[in-house]
């Protein structure tokens, strides 16, 4: 396995490489579509820290994504905040939401946490619907400042921001996976009572996972306001985000960081192609069909399938 400093160096190289992409890819559409694929890589990677490593299913990824998007839009409208501040603000709101939801529900195992995360989506969406400053049900028009000249346009700029976020999220996820935190989360997933009796402070670890997972998913929503110049409750708290966040790690494999990245790459790419060639409504159908197929045929995801084949041979 690649050592962590080398992994970080490779990840940093990938991010720096993104700076030069506008020079070799002239068509901004690829950045526009690529942004969505990367966005789902970040969401799926963040979701997997709690849902995959610790085994706690979060149905409310869109609550975190939407909160991040609206926090960024708010900071932009109220203070004209730069992208970095928007990202930090979104991350903070995600951490707060994650800890609050976790603290209220994680003492009880299983389904209660899942139900609470669904409720969180409804609560936040209703809150935004009734907040005039955030545009209410009609949504909020966002006037983002012009991107740095180097990038040549907004799609290239937000693509680069999302690439940096993706690389950062993957580095965090891998560090957690190979560290004592990941080991403890996997122990919680396998048997919470056995983990607790082995000295693992399970509640504290789950709250930590909630905080990191929530923070990453909310940060994924931060550039959305700049990307689409418009935020509305239906898109920001969309079912598609919540469903994709769950489906992508399940398709790729939930036990390690490449799983959600691979799942997001496959599913989001198919969705982007389907959006252009067939219909945007086809997305949900595609997710549903692929999810059923994987649950039935490869419950451990693509990476689990590879491990299974290795064991059999």
């Amino acid at each position: 396995m690649m050592r962590m400093p080398l992994f970080i160096a490779v990840a940093a190289l990938v991010a720096v490489g993104g700076l030069f992409l506008p020079l070799v890819v002239p068509n901004p559409f690829y950045f526009y579509a690529g942004y969505v694929v990367l966005q789902y890589m970040v969401i799926a990677t963040g979701w997997n820290i709690l849902g995959g490593y610790a085994g706690y299913t979060n149905f409310g990824a869109s609550a975190f994504f939407g909160a991040g998007a609206y926090m960024a839009a708010f900071l932009l409208k109220a203070f004209g905040a730069p992208m970095l501040v928007q990202l930090i603000g979104a991350g903070c709101i995600g951490v707060i939401l994650g800890v609050a939801t976790g603290y209220l529900t994680l003492r009880i195992q299983g389904i209660y946490f899942a139900i609470a995360t669904v409720a969180l989506v409804v609560v936040l969406e209703t809150l935004v619907h009734n907040t005039d400053y955030l545009g209410g049900a009609a949504g909020l028009q966002v006037l983002a400042p012009a991107p740095p000249a180097w990038f040549g346009g907004q799609p290239q700029y937000v693509f680069f921001i999302m690439l940096v976020l993706t690389v950062s999220a993957v580095v965090v996820a891998r560090w957690i996976e190979v560290s004592w935190i990941g080991r403890s989360l996997r122990a919680i997933r396998a048997s919470e009572p056995a983990a607790e009796c082995s000295g693992v402070p399970t509640l504290r670890l789950k709250l930590l996972a909630c905080a990191i997972s929530g923070g990453i998913m909310s940060m994924a929503g931060a550039p959305y306001a700049t990307y689409s110049s418009y935020v509305d409750p239906v898109s920001a708290f969309s079912l598609t985000v919540g469903l994709n966040a769950l489906a992508m790690p399940l398709i790729g494999g939930t036990r390690s960081w490449p799983g959600p990245v691979l799942g997001a790459l496959l599913l989001a790419s198919v969705q982007q192609v389907a959006t252009v060639t067939i219909s945007s409504e086809f997305n949900i159908l595609a997710v549903g069909v692929v999810l059923i197929a994987f649950v039935a045929l490869a419950p451990e995801g693509l990476l689990g399938l590879r491990a299974f084949r290795r064991r059999v041979s």
Binding site: S184, R186, A195, G199
Partner: peptide, 17 residues
């Protein structure tokens, strides 16, 4: 209640952490 998804050695490293 083994910690499935981990090797035998990793099972022992959990309490040791």
């Amino acid at each position: 209640r083994p910690f499935v998804g981990m090797t035998v050695l990793e099972n022992l490293l959990v309490p040791m952490d």
